[in-house]
Design a protein around this nucleic acid. Structure first.
Lengths: 140, 140
DNA sequence: ATTCAAATCATCCTTTCGGGTGAAGGCTTA
DNA sequence: TAAGCCTTCACCCGAAAGGATGATTTGAAT
């Protein structure tokens, strides 16, 4: 981001320098002022468009890949590690028994975790829990 | 999109006109050519940046909202309209009974639809169905 | 007109979920 | 050390889901 701004600044400085040259040649050659103005407008318009596009793209990227398992939401909901493990597998469509097998837990433990998950997510069913977890960016 | 380009064109034309005025005043007032050049550069740079940003945003939107219920995948899976209705509500965390109420169906019918959904999606549970449907872009 | 898929509903039966509750061991922190 | 949370597991019970199968109606295609 800062790098982009820096690059943009450099480009701008360079162009201003070029403009200086043009300014000098203005007295030498016989091109209208309007020509240069249009040229500059086009140049900076294009440059600005590119820059603006890059800016937005970067922002979008930083938002969409802001899926760092979202520690903020995790703390807000108070979901623990183990509960999160269960949540992840629930979202993949595993049954409680399958989750128990994968996490080396008893079925009852998985049920306990999922139950507290529902409470913390304000859900009544696993499908709801998955939906809410996605809203909170807890899972992809 | 076309509208944006048009607006941009209009803005550009307007500014060029303004530049004309400035050009005339150049002979009247005592401001350096560099000043105007920089002004133009900044103006068009900013305008271009805004325009570029808008362009990218629109493109992103059209991509992300290119969620036209993905007819391709629907045909491939052979999911019917009614099944799709059920799928949608399933993905929202509704129970079969709730779905039945919303769609004015009997619980059994909902079960039938969901069962054939699972077959067509290669899922064994509703949570899996939801996950696969998302992969196929059938639901958001 | 016959055929076929979709949509609707049913019954029976098994599995899975989910709620409620209790309890034991471990770790952290006041 | 006591309080508190996390993790683990258990039992009970009702609700929801899911599988198998069959039946009727309707609309579209052949």
């Amino acid at each position: 981001m800062k790098k982009s701004v820096f690059l943009y600044g450099i480009s701008l400085a360079l162009l201003v320098y070029v403009l200086k040259l043009i300014e000098y040649r203005y007295y030498v050659r016989d091109l209208s002022l309007g020509f240069y103005l249009t040229l500059i407008a086009l140049l900076f318009g294009a440059l600005g468009a590119w820059f603006g596009g890059q800016l937005v793209i970067k922002r979008i990227h930083s938002i969409s890949s802001a899926f760092n398992a979202n520690a903020t939401s995790l703390k807000l909901t108070g979901i623990s590690k183990r509960e999160y493990d269960v949540l992840t597998l629930i979202s993949k469509g595993d049954t409680n028994q399958q989750i128990a097998d994968k996490l080396f837990l008893s079925l009852n433990t998985v049920k306990t975790h999922s139950s507290s998950l529902y409470v913390k997510l304000g859900a009544k069913r696993r499908t709801q829990a998955v939906q809410k977890a996605k809203e909170l960016k807890l899972i992809p």
